[in-house]
Design a protein around this nucleic acid. Structure first.
Lengths: 197, 197
DNA sequence: AAGTGTTGCTAACATTCGTTAGTTGTTTTA
DNA sequence: TAAAACAACTAACGAATGTTAGCAACACTT
């Protein structure tokens, strides 16, 4: 009986969650079966249930761990004594780096949250809405300070967030520019589109 | 026996394809069942098969009709005697309007193409890759002409296209700005991020 | 009105799915 | 080393899925 290998401080559940992220990213939550996941983990499907409660639990874990990271970051940035445009840039860089370094989780959280079941679904949607409002509020402050162009802030947020989710294509592309170049290019275009001059 | 209602020039198959677009958009291709679709159409599931060959055929139809529209448009725009930045703007406006007016189809084509089966899958991916290269080529010309900032063109394309797919959120939001405002805001930010000044 | 193709229905199929029960083997604890 | 806890296995379940077969009702042509 081949057990799931674990290093210290990594539970078997963590291994499963990580493999699930990769699988859900590749196939989509609905199309990925527990048997697929079991194979990826190196175990029979039924064995997974010694470590997790259900398939949807895996999605919860992924979605909320990502959401929490972003929530903490915006808490942090809001409190800093810097200009609005600097706050926007910091937040964007965080998004970009998260997308680069935790691709699978972030991607899944972004695209597959629809398959959450209530009450998790409403909860997640709420957090998302609040996050976007806080992001928009930063932009609106910037507009009032004349740091940022007169634009519709929610639209700007929507553009930023979705633009970043496009890093998906970068991950898949064969001739990648470096992560640093990618980040600088994105910041140039996105922040360049906002600043008032 | 309630028949599928059709106006002149709209086949029953078209009705099904349209309903399928809405359903696939809402639930995702895998999660949307043929029984769901049948209910939306007002008919039993088996009856659908008098008009279509399979569930995936519906996805083919949706994905390729959208892809073809974009291909024709880029053909048209490439041939026009206008500046690169104007070409980019025209293409972006087309994308935005398609996303506003044919939301469900475009969204499904964008997010659910993974579930196509070969040879359609490879075909679609090819078209997509070619389209992006042509878009990038327009931007690169603009960079050489110094109309556009020195940036990585593929990254710019990726940002533009994904940013536009964010119109999804606009559609769902309750307090919408008008479609015209949305378009102008998006152009301001996206083109503003490109132009050299 | 008869005939013909179209479009709907019911019933059922083979698969696949997430998950549970019960058991066996392995590791950790005492 | 025996006991307890953990983690794997096989087998199977009920539900849902895409799809087919066979038949009945409708609509249009002549």
């Amino acid at each position: 009986m081949a057990r799931i290998k674990t290093d210290k401080n990594i539970s078997r559940k963590d291994v499963i969650v990580t493999k699930a992220a990769a699988l859900f990213r590749e196939k989509g939550f609905k199309a990925a079966s527990m048997r697929d996941l079991a194979e990826a983990v190196g175990v029979e499907a039924a064995s997974l249930y010694n470590h997790i409660k259900s398939k949807t639990e895996l999605l919860h874990e992924l979605c909320f761990s990502v959401a929490n990271r972003f929530m903490h970051k915006i808490d942090e940035i809001e409190a800093e004594p810097i200009s609005s445009i600097q706050k926007v840039e910091k937040l964007l860089r965080f998004h970009i780096e998260e997308m680069i370094n935790h691709y699978e989780e972030v991607y899944v959280s972004d695209r597959e949250w629809k398959h959450l079941a209530d009450p998790y679904l409403s909860n997640f949607q709420n957090q998302r809405r609040i996050y976007r409002k806080r992001f928009a509020a930063i932009i609106e402050t910037g507009i009032r300070n004349k740091e940022i162009k007169k634009i519709d802030a929610p639209t700007a947020v929507l553009i930023m967030l979705h633009a970043i989710s496009g890093i998906e294509s970068w991950h898949r592309s064969t001739q990648k520019i470096s992560a640093e170049e990618l980040e600088e290019n994105m910041i140039t275009i996105l922040v360049g589109g906002l600043v008032n001059r």
